[in-house]
Every structure is written in C-alpha cells, then in structure tokens.
Simulated scan of single mutants.
Amino acid sequence: MISVLLVDDHLVVRAGLKSLLDSQPDLRVVAEAATGELGVEAAQLHGPDVVMMDLALGAGMDGIAAIAQIRRVRPAQAVLVFTTYDSDSDLVRAVDAGAMGYLLKDSVPEEIFAAIRGAVAGLSVMSPPVASRLFHQMQHPEETLTAREAELLALLTQGLSNRELSKRLLISEATVKTHLAHIYAKLDVESRSAAVAAAIGRNGMRH
C-alpha cells in the first residue's frame, strides 16, 4: 500500500483527489494539510511514501519552501508537485527544491496514478506539457536565468570586478558570488571567462 499526504489549501481539491486516489487498491491518503507549515509537520508525523504538494498555499510558507523543508528533514521523501501553475520559474524552483515530479491539475487520473507509483520506484514523472518545457530548458539553460542574473551576466561582459558589480547592482559581494555560482551552473560553465563567452554568444544569436 502506497501512503499519500495531500497538501493543498482548497478543501474541495483535497476531497476530490482523496476520493480519486482511494479508489485505487494500492493507494491510500493517510493525511491532509491546508498550509505549507502543516504539510511539513504532517510529513514528519505520518512519514508518507509520497507527498502531493500544491505550490500556492495562501499566506505563510508556499509549496516550494515546504518541499525544501520536507526534503531537509526527510532527504529520501518523494514529493510530487500538483498545481495549476506551469511557468518556467515555478518548474525550476520546484525541481531545485527537490520535487521528483510535476503534475498539472488537469492531468488525467491515469497520469496521476502513474506518477505516484513511479515516485515510489524512484522515477521522475511530469505532465507532458511540463516535460516538454523542461526539455526545452535543458537545451536552452540561459533562458532560465532570473532578471537579476541576466543583468549581472550582461555586466560581466564589461569586465567589472565583483566589487564593481556589487556597487553597480547595490548588493553585497557575497550576493554577487552567489549569483555567479547560479549563472555558472545554469550555463554549464566553470569560469568567469566562459560565462562571458556564453553571454557574447547568446547576444550574437539574438542579433
């Protein structure tokens, strides 16, 4: 029997999903939570096989923060995002936080069942539109840069030092280094010069 925790701030959504999952002989909803904070507590208390997590949870901790907290406390916990949001930033943040799968709420029941069973088996499952979007991002990682990272990358081509970047952007040097680390990872480069080359190539293609 696969135990499932539902985290969603809409009672009707939780009730509908619970009814759907409980219709399967191998799936059982063992707990529900309406907030991110309660979701984290429920995950620790019940130790479900799979957590189904919405991203928008009203005031307080959002789904991304809840996923990250659950994975810190329970590193092996399987968490599936179950949401109406499919933006690039939400997808990247959810995966970075530790989500094993990303399902849209308009997914057919068979996709939801398969995702839950797959998560228990250690497989990453995503709704077709989300999978297509992620594949595109893997081919074009520069498009996942945040506005601030893109701005910093553009300034790198001017040969500015970290100190100059911090003054120009009104942020600390430590924050500059953090942004640079994220940029390097997203562009799959290991040095400042490689990042600059990538930035120049990027702009060249756009023109």
Rank of each mutant, 00 (worst) to 15 (best):
A197D: 11
G118M: 03
A31C: 15
D96L: 03
S124E: 03
A195C: 12
S172Y: 00
E142P: 03
L160P: 08
A131T: 10
L187K: 12
Y184T: 10
I112D: 00
L55A: 05
D54M: 13
H207T: 14
L187V: 07
T35C: 12
A65Y: 01
P48Y: 02
V120N: 02
D26F: 01
E173R: 07
E190I: 05
Q139G: 10
V7W: 06
A56E: 10
E143P: 10
Q158D: 12
L169H: 05
L6N: 03
L57G: 06
L27N: 01
R117C: 04
H182L: 11
V50L: 05
A185G: 08
L180A: 06
T175A: 11
D88L: 07
L169V: 02
T146V: 01
P141L: 13
Y102K: 12
L169T: 03
V92G: 01
D88M: 04
L5Q: 14
T83Q: 10
D106H: 15
S89R: 13
A115Q: 08
A121C: 09
S19T: 13
G47W: 04
A150I: 01
R192F: 01
A68I: 11
L11T: 06
L6V: 09
R14Q: 11
D9Y: 11
K177V: 10
L21D: 00
P25A: 15
A185D: 04
M1Q: 13
G98Y: 07
A94V: 15
T144I: 05
A197H: 03
L103F: 02
A68V: 09
T157D: 10
S127G: 08
H140E: 05
P129A: 14
D62G: 09
R74G: 02
Q69W: 07
L6R: 00
M205A: 14
S87Y: 00
A43F: 08
E164P: 03
V12H: 09
I171A: 09
V73T: 12
E142L: 06
L6T: 07
D49L: 08
V196P: 11
H207D: 12
K177E: 14
A114D: 07
Q137I: 13
L170Y: 10
S19P: 00
F135E: 11
V12R: 08
L57H: 08
L45R: 11
D62H: 13
G201M: 08
S166C: 01
S3V: 02
V73I: 12
S172N: 00
P75Q: 11
L134C: 07
G101Q: 13
V73K: 12
L180R: 04
L155F: 03
P109Q: 12
D62I: 02
A34R: 09
L6W: 01
L91F: 01
H182E: 15
A194L: 12
L20P: 00
A78S: 13
G63I: 10
G36H: 15
L57N: 12
P141D: 13
Q158V: 09
A154G: 03
G63A: 14
